[in-house]
Design a protein around this nucleic acid. Structure first.
Lengths: 207, 207
DNA sequence: ACCTGAACACCGTTCAAGT
DNA sequence: ACCTGAACACCGTTCAAGT
């Protein structure tokens, strides 16, 4: 093995995301990533303080290809588009989604996307303080939705318990089962609709 | 040590929550819980299939004292009250909150609370399918909010990065910093307000 | 029937050493 | 300057054995 300093943060992060894409969250260990790179586990600590810092960078990379629409698009369509793009990114990289959901990424891409959402909310006519609060609410909803979408995607006995519990709730009349699927796109869009309606009400109250 | 079968699921779960309350999530290991009980780690596996199953039970116990208001209370006040009670429970048991947020509890208490929320949503005049979708949206929002409330509560250098990122977002005018606090009660209530406004709009569209 | 103990196959990370 | 290797202090869980 060449001893040249071939190790860069970018290469480590890309390799870690690769490992996670192939084997899931639990395979993304310092030892496994190092093995993939052909280096000693401890070499990674030259570039990241610890495992969490590395996972932060991986989470930010996972949302790298989330596009932020420009202001020619209506503000609510912008928010919807960004939300769907983040959800798609999470489904493409399920192994890092739990980390993504647990802590909003504060790296380059996280900040870029956050600025896009906040811009849309200000275009909605919200005063800055309300825009930031709405932004935070959207982040909270998104985070859980990503995690749920991924968990619903894997065939998981444990997650089916949640779906079964929701289906067993006492409702007056039983609609089609497809509506009850936890983590589905339809469910995701319904939640976005509620939040956007709430934001519109805030904007209307101001103007 | 007495060899009598003193070990029960209830005692194990209560002890685990105790350990978590005192030392946080990372101290809640099979080995540590067993040490606290004065038994062998493997004795726990006689009552729980694995660590995840045990944590599920601990999460359900953590929301045991969340009260569900009866139907004399207005439906939206009921939803708000349950939300705040769950948030309070999470803050009282921060060590299990990440698990609680990652997977809605499907135990006795989880089902009881779920039925309470769903009852309130039907009282709002939503048709069953919409009520279930609204319920799921509330669960998603709540889950993230709990995790964020707990993370904001601990003095955590990493979490401060998130707050700093939000504060650094380009807004037209800078409001008071207290509005920007990620995980605050005010922020939590604002999100509930958005969702309840959205649910009211759904109910109005039906009637 | 219920609990134990040793063992397996891992972890993240520290520290002293190599080149 | 950068990487290595052994070691530390842990994990969850399997399996065969004890009483």
């Amino acid at each position: 093995m060449a001893r040249a300093r071939f190790l860069t943060p970018e290469l480590i992060v890309r390799t870690a995301l690769d490992v996670s894409d192939r084997g899931g969250a639990e395979t993304m260990t310092m030892r496994r990533i190092a093995a993939e790179l052909g280096c000693d586990p401890m070499a990674l600590y030259r570039h990241f303080a610890n495992r969490e810092a590395l996972l932060d960078a991986v989470a930010d990379l996972a949302v790298a290809d989330v596009a932020v629409p420009d202001s020619s698009m209506a503000w609510d369509d912008r928010v919807r588009a960004i939300g769907e793009a983040i959800r798609d990114a999470a489904l493409r990289h399920p192994g890092i989604t739990a980390h993504l959901a647990a802590r909003p990424p504060v790296g380059e891409n996280g900040r870029r996307i956050a600025a896009g959402v906040l811009g849309a909310l200000e275009a909605a006519g919200l005063p800055p303080a309300t825009a930031v609060q709405s932004f935070q609410t959207l982040v909270a909803y998104l985070a859980s939705s990503l995690a749920m979408a991924v968990q619903a995607g894997v065939r998981d006995r444990r997650w089916e318990q949640v779906r079964d519990m929701v289906n067993a709730l006492p409702v007056a009349a039983a609609p089609g089962e497809e509506l009850f699927v936890v983590g589905s796109v339809e469910q995701f869009r319904f939640g976005m609709r509620l939040l956007l309606a709430g934001i519109k009400a805030e904007a209307a109250a101001v103007s």
